[in-house]
Nucleic acid binder design. Structure first.
Lengths: 339, 339
DNA sequence: CTGAAAGCGCTAACAG
DNA sequence: CTGTTAGCGCTTTCAG
């Protein structure tokens, strides 16, 4: 009936370690808290014993006691846009390196994030990184009051109290306007993404401002409706009717779809007959079949800022960061002479 | 000093509900367990009160008590291969629909999954879905003994006790061999992916068997080393030296890279000069620039089987499922006459 | 610096 | 069917 030493029933707990060493259980808990006071001698004794027994603090129990979990939720809307799969990949990695776990939370299209967020709270999630989805500032405030950070990637909200980090979409739009104008384009079309996204709005605003400053304008504006390859192709058909010499698609996936439709369905040459530019610089933009000139979003900086923000202490102030995009010129724009 | 009713300090707990209704706390716990016995009258009274107070059971506490979490970990190796981002997307959605949360666990390239798995155990993760990574059968057995299901997607292990679900890679390889032979190809090259993956091995085996059965063979075999666009391009250069009339790339991303290199760097026409086929049917394979003939993996079936397996009761038997792939013919293979 | 004790919020026997 | 009583494994005062 006596306990066999080597053969525990469950996983080893702090009490097992305590018993082995003849110290109190709370001591071994402290030994794993850097800021707690334990004599150096005991601390090393404890970590050694812990390793020997294969002890690791149970995160769930800790979470129950502390009300934190060191897990952050990544909220994702559609993953149709490859840009976000890149973000997700880097995010997961960065969080991991910061000692945080990622709970992936995929919002079905058409569903509102806000409704699902309370459910997340029950997991004691420490923070929220929202990419490719929106969130009401009321909910954001609730989380904040509860000392849980929320940061938006590539989306901004009016409420200044919620951290958001994004690319300078407006400035990017301007750069593209300048590029197209400088190279002599006269008949420009803008293909818009979903109308309720701030990315789309800012890119368009920047582009339009850039044009107007130089007394130029659009020959037309097409609404693609969503960010997808097929929507880009469909938009290209409608755009082609306008006989443009340059098209700015609100993002790369749209541009790629458009490019292919222009070439393979509309029998137009890009860039000879019409130039096209996009935004994001997803991986496929650099593939030889496309060679799309576009604005590169500084994904890794965005990701590390986001992780830093979510890991920041509660006292830290929520601020919005906007990082400049980089124009990368490839083969989809041609200099036009004459006229 | 008396408690104000409306103004709790923390979130509302089961005890708050109990107090309000004048019943025991355990009763309210039972009310949320369908299999527990509570008088119908009380049950409805409780759920109403709960809703009124905004009570929801705390998952962490539950997890501590039950040693389960309704969280399953998705283990992902590289997300470079777009095939897996599709899998991930669907997986997250399917798990969500099954009432499970997904903890995303990204294994850095070159790292071994096994080392990180114990860390996951501390989260009381109910199960493990491993995609694009390997796991030792020792670890798998450990989890299993602990009543936590592990299922592999697109990877098999010798040990029959771990569930695995994959596409019939071997059969797919055969189909491709037949296709290429039927259309009169004589100089075939196989471009291999990472040598230690079962996907690569099976596809190659199936392909070779298909060839040998018809007394055909390869004119060469190239090792791409990894599953990536650039690796495919590099492999295409080496393959071209062999003057092939048909190339089977071990998967689509390789094939796409190869296709582009063949056309834009090697100045070869596909399929006129050389046919190419891939495997997976990732989204880009259907893009007009590529129109790649390939084998479609039944991703949604694979995903739902995986979720079913991970949610299965402990008594359920771990079995391996292999689903047939579907040949989808597009424009990258040409019928060859003569000789 | 260390130990004792009181929770965190829930589940699960066990009596009644 | 319902209440009581122990925990789950850890953190955190509070004394010593």
């Amino acid at each position: 009936m006596s306990k066999q030493p080597g053969r525990q029933k469950g996983p080893v707990t702090s009490r097992d370690v305590a018993r082995l060493l003849g110290v109190s259980q709370s001591m071994i808990s402290r030994a794993f808290d850097p800021r707690a006071s334990v004599s150096p001698a005991n601390r090393t004794r404890i970590v050694e014993a812990a390793r020997a027994l294969g002890y690791e603090p149970n995160v769930i129990a800790r979470s129950l006691a502390t009300r934190r979990s060191s897990i952050v939720a990544i909220v994702m809307g559609s993953m149709e846009n490859p840009f976000y799969t890149g973000v997700l990949d880097q995010l997961a990695q960065a969080l991991d390196e910061a000692g945080l776990r990622s709970l992936l939370f995929r919002v079905p299209p058409g569903q509102d994030v806000d409704d699902q967020l309370p459910a997340l709270r029950r997991y004691n999630v420490d923070g929220l990184i929202v990419a490719s989805a929106s969130i009401s500032s009321r909910i954001a405030a609730e989380w904040r009051r509860d000392d849980r950070r929320v940061v938006l990637i590539n989306r901004t909200v009016p409420d200044a109290s919620v951290a958001s980090i994004s690319c300078d979409n407006c400035g990017g739009g301007r750069q593209l306007a300048d590029l197209l104008l400088d190279s002599g384009h006269k008949r420009l079309v803008y293909v818009a993404g979903p109308r309720n996204t701030s990315t789309n709005r800012d890119r368009e605003d920047g582009f339009m401002e850039g044009l107007m400053e130089r007394n130029a304008g659009l020959v037309g504006r097409i609404d693609a409706g969503e960010y997808s390859f097929n929507a880009g192709a469909a938009a290209a058909h409608r755009a082609a009717a306008l006989k443009p010499d340059g098209i700015f698609f609100a993002n790369d996936i749209l541009a790629l779809g458009g490019l292919d439709a222009l070439r393979h369905e509309l029998r137009l040459q890009v860039p000879k007959h019409v130039s096209v530019v996009g935004f994001d610089d997803i991986e496929m933009a650099s593939w030889p079949s496309y060679r799309l000139t576009t604005i590169r979003q500084p994904v890794s900086e965005m990701v590390s800022s986001a992780v830093a923000a979510v890991a920041a202490s509660a006292t830290a102030q929520a601020n919005s960061i906007s990082l400049p995009g980089l124009l990368v010129e490839r083969g989809s724009v041609m200099r036009r002479h004459g006229m």
